[in-house]
Design a binder for these strands. Structure first.
Lengths: 153, 153
DNA sequence: ATTGATGCAAAAGATTTGCAAACTG
DNA sequence: CAGTTTGCAAATCTTTTGCATCAAT
């Protein structure tokens, strides 16, 4: 799916929900779908301001939260109090590994993990609406680097 | 393990690490291990102030963060920007289900889930240090209540 | 024209920090 | 005693909100 299409899907959905489609909402939405990395709200604001340095912080925050509630964007707590976001459209579900050393975020998916979560939920009569699985640790690159550092020393 | 013992374990560990053991650190630690629910930093401050209304917010925050870094306390992002904490000593690892309706937090554990996470990590050369799995949805009680509400209506 | 959306600046909530004074080892 | 830790208040950081103005339908 190209970015233009994704933005149109969002626009149609928002209009259907009775929201107005403004140039700001279009800008923020385009920026969200152009960003193929995880971004914080402030980073999104900066990215938007590169296109239009007049957008207000409030509008970016409001639009981001609108996109999140509509399910086009998902928030990800980074474990240290921060939050990152990613777009979801045309981006199948996945979980995350976060490197405590370099901060990189790796996406992964495991069918069996998904299944077992449903099993565990059923056992408690719990109905899953969404889930969040994060593995915190050290990524391959950092492990290699550390191994090298210690052999050099 | 009784609360006194847990506090002693923490005290010994902290002293060994070269930290000083003050009345405030003892108070915060005792409060953390007395709390058998998930608490926010501000709630912990209030609980501590019930024992000693002189403790400062900064000290409670600093001690909490010290306990977290030492691994005696774990933080849990509630998905809406908030953070809750729980003590870990003598409290085996578990994951959480969070009810979006009533806010209750259910703890659960599934051996197979743990195993699969390791498998997924290995596949990416990633070394897990800790993980966080949260299922957001509706708990049994709320589901029953909703079913009743709709049949009454 | 109506009503929702924007921008601003102020407010709010959570946590951190600088520094003098108090306390621990 | 020396070096930590505390308490306070101010500073940060992130996000939200009130309200007058502007714009989409």
């Amino acid at each position: 799916m190209e970015i233009g299409e994704e933005v149109e899907v969002v626009e149609r959905h928002m209009r259907k929900m009775g929201f107005r489609w403004t140039s700001q909402r279009s800008l923020v939405t385009r920026t969200v779908f152009t960003s193929h990395e995880h971004f914080s709200a402030e980073e999104l604001l900066e990215l938007c301001r590169k296109m239009d340095r007049e957008v207000s912080r409030a509008t970016v925050y409001r639009t981001l939260s609108m996109l999140e509630r509509a399910g086009f964007v998902e928030g990800l707590d980074t474990g240290d109090g921060g939050r990152k976001f990613e777009h979801v459209l045309g981006h199948p579900h996945h979980d995350h590994m976060l490197c405590n050393s370099c901060g990189v975020i790796i996406e992964f998916f495991d069918e069996e993990l998904e299944r077992r979560q449903e099993v565990a939920a059923k056992l408690h009569g719990f109905e899953i609406q969404r889930h969040s699985l994060k593995l915190f640790g050290i990524c391959r690159t950092c492990r290699v680097r550390k191994a090298e550092d210690s052999s050099e020393a």
